[in-house]
Design a protein around this nucleic acid. Structure first.
Length: 581
DNA sequence: GCCGTTTTCGGCCCGACTGTTTTCAGTCG
């Protein structure tokens, strides 16, 4: 785990342990917020100046002292103390749905339950019923919560969740009684993983809609169902919540259920400071005491943008709603950031043909790109070190370059470049010599091996590739797999500075398994002034469809079209290419 | 634990749902 990862984990653990010990909930929240804030950093938190840390919202003297203690000693005394007081097995109990810190604490102090096995035993023996407020229904729910935890898949990748949500929205949206329907939550915000799918609908016949939702073929279990909310578990182990709201309150509900929680809190604070109250039913004028009088009509509730406007804000894209400065950036009168849209993308600069490990021929891949309205494609098969991917040796590469250039006659409207995805070797050298690289129109340099390399060596390795005068783009810079492997631990700020200095672009690999760079690192790169490439790393025709995940990640990093290679016009892109030739 | 254009102390976003109560605590998003 990276140093920052360890500090973030320490604050999260402090929050959980404090919660079990019955600490003030606001303190627990503050600890969690510190963890989330630090998680978004791209520089080494232990090397940061005290003033820079304190300048961040939600980071105070106590948090800084803990960070400095960790930097000096590799630990935090308070964490050591709390671990000594709380049995390790209790934190797992908090993951059970419906079981919170108060009940876990009571289980521990009243019944001596210290882990999941002991909890199950107390359920079997009936001892659990001795706890206050623990009636038969609660015990039943506890059993189900444990069963769900043991079969839960945890957070699923966005590339799995988004198609499911879209299909569901299309299916239910086709019902005549459904007036409006959309997905919300972290899925709408474009997070790389999703806990559950939230769908929001307005309907003239809510009970029929709920009935249809409950009885879909894909549903394995109905977790809860009522007038306004139904939760189901699908056969693939994914929880889907459907909420029904009045049509004229759809905007406020959509805003509310899209989140993030931290963003919602900021919006509500803003409403209060302007003499209003915000909830899922709308933005309301508040009385003298701050309450909403019975029967008060909302100032805004139909569309999200109405509510934003009434709060003195421009509409904020969902991907940016993470309490990372977006509320200040979108105030009316401020020139708001204009994030990139999928329609801005006009080039694919990283793809593989049958020459290495792709499924399409040169002509097929170009035709695909052309059909998508692209003006440029760079074909970048693997270099010789990728033997398992049928990487090209020097002889094959020279013939491949000729074959790609020959395709230009057949696709006169397209700008077609012969490139390579060349391996960055362990010491940062490239897998082809410079003479051969110079013959290529386009060079993507990527790490594929030794992805557990020592952080200092890994950083030096990547810096050497960034500084190479013939390299255009660094492909999937960390080599991570979402929910799979962490990838290289890199000093990102050093990479950004070098990429800016040498005018080497950094890739957002759009494959939902990769999303590399991740969102927070995109933000760091954007702030450092780096150029970004959003590429699908195409191996098959369907891979072009991964673009949406790359764009969502780019938006989460506040990338504008002006900093994205794939959004340039053909001439400008070629001019950018030529500065490396 | 954090924070301050009334405050350096005393607040801190908001409502729904559930199951357990005899008026509400706990959990969730």
């Amino acid at each position: 785990m990276s140093t920052n990862g360890k500090v973030v984990a320490a604050f999260e653990e402090l929050a959980v342990l404090s919660e079990i010990l019955g600490e003030n909930a606001f303190k627990v929240n503050a600890l969690r917020r510190s963890a989330r804030t630090l998680e978004a950093l791209t520089s080494d938190v232990c090397a940061m100046e005290k003033s820079a840390l304190l300048a961040m919202d939600g980071i105070g003297a106590s948090t800084v002292a803990k960070i400095q203690e960790f930097a000096a000693s590799g630990t935090m005394q308070e964490l050591v103390d709390l671990r000594a007081r709380v049995p390790a097995g209790l934190t797992q109990l908090l993951q059970i749905q419906g079981l919170g810190p108060k009940t876990v604490r009571a289980m521990w102090t009243d019944l001596g339950i210290e882990n999941l096995a002991a909890l199950k035993a107390s359920i079997d023996s009936g001892a659990i019923a001795k706890l206050p407020r623990m009636g038969p229904k609660s015990v039943e729910n506890l059993k189900e919560g444990i069963a769900f935890l043991e079969q839960s898949r945890g957070r699923i990748r966005i590339g799995e969740a988004l198609p499911i949500a879209e299909a569901l929205v299309a299916e239910l949206g086709a019902l005549p009684s459904v007036q409006r329907i959309a997905y919300a939550g972290s899925l709408r915000r474009g997070r790389e993983t999703i806990g559950d799918i939230d769908v929001l609908a307005a309907s003239t016949d809510a009970s029929a809609l709920m009935e249809r939702f409950r009885t879909r073929e894909d549903v394995a279990k109905v977790l809860a169902t009522g007038e306004t909310k139904t939760s189901v578990l699908t056969k693939h182990g994914i929880q889907i919540d459907l909420r029904v709201v009045p049509l004229d309150r759809f905007g406020s509900a959509w805003l509310y259920f899209t989140g993030s929680t931290d963003h919602n809190i900021r919006l509500r604070e803003r409403a209060i400071s302007q003499g209003m109250r915000l909830n899922e039913y709308g933005l309301f004028p508040a009385g003298e005491d701050g309450s909403i009088a019975e029967g008060t009509l909302p100032v805004a509730s139909v569309e999200e943008a109405d509510i934003h406007a009434a709060l003195g804000l421009q509409w904020i894209p969902p991907t940016m709603r993470e309490d990372r400065g977006e509320i200040e950036a979108f105030a009316i009168g401020v020139e708001a950031p204009c994030v990139i849209q999928q329609s801005d993308i006009r080039a694919e600069l990283h793809c593989h043909t049958v020459a290495s490990d792709g499924g399409m021929t040169i002509d097929e891949i170009i035709a695909n790109a052309q059909a998508r309205g692209f003006h440029t494609i760079a074909i970048t098969d693997h270099s010789k070190g990728q033997a398992q991917a049928n990487g090209l040796d020097e002889t094959r590469l020279l013939a491949h370059i000729d074959a790609i250039h020959a395709a230009r006659a057949r696709f006169p409207a397209m700008q077609i470049w012969a490139g390579s995805e060349v391996d960055i070797l362990l010491d940062g050298a490239l897998d082809y010599d410079d003479k051969l690289l110079a013959k290529l129109d386009w060079v993507v340099a990527s790490p594929h091996a030794a992805l557990k390399q020592d952080p200092q060596l890994a950083t030096a390795r990547m810096l050497r590739a960034i500084r190479h005068p013939l390299v255009h783009v660094i492909g999937h810079p960390t080599g991570r797999i979402v929910n799979g492997r962490p990838g290289l631990e890199l000093a990102m700020d050093e990479l950004f500075a070098a990429a800016r200095e040498h005018n080497t672009a950094l890739e957002i690999n759009a494959q939902h398994l990769r999303l590399d760079l991740r969102d927070a690192d995109v933000r760091g790169a954007v702030n450092a002034g780096c150029m970004i490439a959003i590429d699908c790393d195409v191996h098959s025709s369907e891979d072009f469809g991964e673009l949406r995940y790359g764009v969502l990640t780019a938006q989460r990093g506040w990338l504008s079209a002006s900093q994205c290679l794939n959004a340039m016009d053909a001439k400008a892109l070629n001019a950018w290419r030529m500065q490396k030739r």
